[in-house]
Design a protein around this nucleic acid. Structure first.
Lengths: 111, 111
DNA sequence: TCACAACATGAAGAATTCTTCAATTCAGCA
DNA sequence: TGCTGAATTGAAGAATTCTTCATGTTGTGA
C-alpha cells in the first residue's frame, strides 16, 4: 500500500483539527458567506480567522470570490456535510454516558 | 453556540490526523487484529505504533483486550467506516484532475 | 525461577502548528 | 489624490505533537 495516500488522508483530517476551521465549515453548510459575517459569529481576531481560512483554501475545502469590498467564502464540495455528519455520529457514540457534550450534539442533529 | 463542542470535534479530527493512526483504523475495518499483525503491515517501530495506539485508545476510537501473550485491537464503533468513506469521497473530489493519488483512491473505493 | 517475547510507558529533543502583531493589498469614496 | 474599511500576509515566539530511546510490565515456556 502506498504511503503518500495515508499521508494525504492524515493531512486532510488535520486540516479539520481546529475549532475555528470546524466552525467555518459548519457555517458555510448553510450557504456562502462573507468574511465579515463569519467574523461576527466566531469570536476570534480577524487575522486569525484569515489564517484559518487560508488553511482551508490551500486544502481546497473552500473557495473564495471577491465581491466589491468583501470576500465571500463557500464550500468547495457538499460532501463536507456528510463528513461532519459522520463525525457527529461517532462523537455521539463515544460521549454517550459521559454527559456534558452529548445533549448538545443531539440537539444539533435534530436541527 | 458552545465552544467546547467545536473543541471536541476538532480534537476528534486531530486524532485522525496521523498516517499511522489512519492505517490502523483502516486495517481494523476488516476486524480485530493483534498488535503483532498491525506491526507487520505498517512499517514503523513497535514503540511508535504503541504510542499511536495509545492515542486512539484515549480518544475511545479503538478498544484493546489482552489474549494471552498478545493484545488484540478493534474498532469501538463501526461508524468509523462511514467516516473514512466520507473522507475518501471528498479527497477524490479534491484531487480530481491533479493526478497521482486519484487512481489509488478510486481503486480503493472499488474494493 | 529465569529468560525471552510482546507491548506499553516516560521523557527529551526535533518538528509542526498556533496565535498574535505589524505591515500590505484592494476597493470605494470624499 | 488621500482616507478608510475589509481582508490577507509574513514573521516570531509560544504551544503542541512526533519520534525515538531507555526502561517497565505481563505472560509463556524451559
Amino acid at each position: 500500500m502506498p504511503v503518500p495516500l495515508y499521508q494525504a488522508k492524515a493531512d486532510f483530517f488535520r486540516t479539520l483539527g481546529h475549532p475555528v476551521r470546524i466552525r467555518v465549515l459548519e457555517l458555510l453548510r448553510d450557504g456562502p458567506r462573507p468574511v465579515r459575517e463569519l467574523l461576527n459569529e466566531i469570536e476570534v481576531e480577524a487575522s486569525n480567522l484569515s489564517q484559518q481560512l487560508a488553511v482551508l483554501r490551500r486544502t481546497g475545502l473552500v473557495g473564495a470570490v471577491r465581491e466589491g469590498g468583501t470576500v465571500v467564502y463557500s464550500l468547495a464540495t457538499p460532501d463536507v456535510v456528510d463528513l461532519l455528519a459522520a463525525a457527529r455520529r461517532i462523537l455521539t457514540d463515544m460521549i454517550t454516558g459521559q454527559g456534558e457534550l452529548l445533549a448538545e450534539l443531539q440537539a444539533e442533529a435534530a436541527e
